[in-house]
Amino acid sequence: MGQLGQILQQLGINGTLLLSQIVNFFIVMFILRMLLYKPVLGMLEKRKERIAQSMKDVERASAAAGEAEQEKAGILDGARREAQEIRAQAARDTEKIAQEIRSRADAEATAIRMKGQADAEAQVQTILTDAKKQIADLAIAATEQLLGRELQNRAEQERFVNEYLAQQSGSGK
């Protein structure tokens, strides 16, 4: 045992120094644990979490952006379709209005023509009546002259002429 002690002494191993080195090691470990390991590992952990969170956020944001893009496309598509519809409707409406105007103009023209026809007819009728009257007068005068006699009864005379005229107009057509 004494020999071992001597060897240890020759190697410089000394109880006090050994113990102080062990204590030193534990103190350093304690201090580093408080000052270095806990904050650094905690920070590494926190940073890892933060990065994971950021990645998730980015993913979510990009998904939302895609969705918005899709929505935008949908809205645009709808708008385009609507515009087309409105245009088609407008075209249809125009066509209808034009048709209406045309038909109304047609009707008006027809009415005007009809009226003109009727007027003309009435005029013809008047003229004809006049002419008949004159003809009758002339005929009477001519007959008077021709017959050389005057009917005694004026009223009877007129009745006779009218009868004759009615007969004429009836076969005149």
Binding site: V28, L35, L36, V40
Partner: peptide, 29 residues
Amino acid sequence: VILILALWTRATIKMIPSGFSHVVEIMLE
């Protein structure tokens, strides 16, 4: 020396890694 390095790291450690504390972080990691 170890204590000073540890304190320095502790004081400068940030969420966004930079400088000396970042070197220590890399080493410890």
